[in-house]
């Protein structure tokens, strides 16, 4: 890579350093603290009995099935709602910060006036966000595998790694949508609205649609369902699940970069 291309990647990596580390360390801490409660939970059958007495729809909606098993414990406490939601939000916020928000505040102008194309700047920024999502995922895997070991939560490391990868890809998908809106409009308010609406709608479609017979088939329209519908903590994950999240993330970002090159730059 040329010094110039490297710098276009290094600028967002540096700029998002604080936000990226806060997200990564927060998620790692959440994982460690949750797993730390596993020994106490394992030895307390009352809670399991309570959950088993709940209606099936409620159990499905909050991912509480098999709550007594290690996989069920991780799913119910972390990977059904909280972790994917946090990664989707992180993807939207990080991408917005490096694109629309930076453009709208006027801070991007110092770079846009340099001898590089707008597309190159945009792609460098999106790649920087992608790398930060990767770092967040690595921190999560390390926290999960180490705390499983320390607190005696017996689950295969492979299952955990795959689940984290799927959640990170869900974050990347939302970041891709944010990049698309940022490229088309340059308006941070719209980017946040679209990203957050997608995250919430996706969760609702996956978690609550199955309760209704009419809506049930539509749960498969949710990116959450693509990522987690196969229960990756228990089952092997099909290859298409990675592709259906990862490829749109790249394609939407590319369309965003193209659109960014064709319009007026926003003036704060």
């Amino acid at each position: 890579m040329t010094a110039r291309a490297w710098e276009l990647l290094a600028v967002p990596l540096r700029a998002a350093r604080r936000a990226g580390l806060v997200w990564g360390l927060s998620l790692a801490a959440l994982i460690v603290l949750t797993v730390a409660f596993y020994p106490a939970f394992r030895d307390e059958p009352e809670l399991n009995n309570l959950i088993e007495g709940m209606p099936d729809a409620l159990i499905d909606a909050f991912g509480l099935a098999d709550f007594g098993t290690p996989a069920g414990f991780l799913r119910g406490n972390l990977y059904a709602v909280l972790v994917p939601l946090m990664l989707a939000v992180a993807g939207v916020l990080l991408m917005n910060g490096q694109t629309a928000s930076d453009e709208d505040s006027g801070r991007m102008e110092a770079y846009l006036a340099q001898p590089v194309t707008r597309q190159a700047i945009f792609i460098g920024r999106a790649a920087g966000v992608g790398l930060w999502l990767l770092v967040i995922g690595v921190l999560m895997v390390v926290a999960q595998v180490m705390s499983d070991e320390v607190f005696g939560l017996d689950i295969g490391a492979e299952r955990v790694v795959v689940t984290v990868i799927l959640c990170v890809l869900l974050g990347a998908f939302h970041a891709g949508v944010a990049a698309l809106v940022a490229g088309l409009t340059g308006r941070p308010g719209l980017v946040l609205a679209a990203g957050m609406a997608l995250a919430v709608a996706g969760y609702v479609a996956m978690a609550l649609f199955p309760i209704s017979d009419v809506l049930e088939p539509w749960r498969h329209a949710s990116p959450w369902d693509w990522a987690l519908g196969g229960d990756p903590l228990t089952n092997a994950t099909e290859a298409w699940r990675y592709l259906v999240l990862g490829v749109p993330a790249l394609v939407l970002t590319a369309i965003g970069a193209w659109a960014f090159g064709r319009r007026d730059v926003q003036v704060g």
């Binding site: 010094a3 490297w6 505040s105 801070r107 006036a113 340099q114 003036v267």
Partner: peptide, 22 residues
């Protein structure tokens, strides 16, 4: 630029180095 906004979490030297690389 007239309405001047620069990246904020870097020093002046880091900013100039960055522009110099581009």
């Amino acid at each position: 630029p007239g309405e001047l906004r620069l990246p904020e979490r870097v020093t002046g030297r880091q900013f100039l180095t960055s522009i110099g690389r581009i």
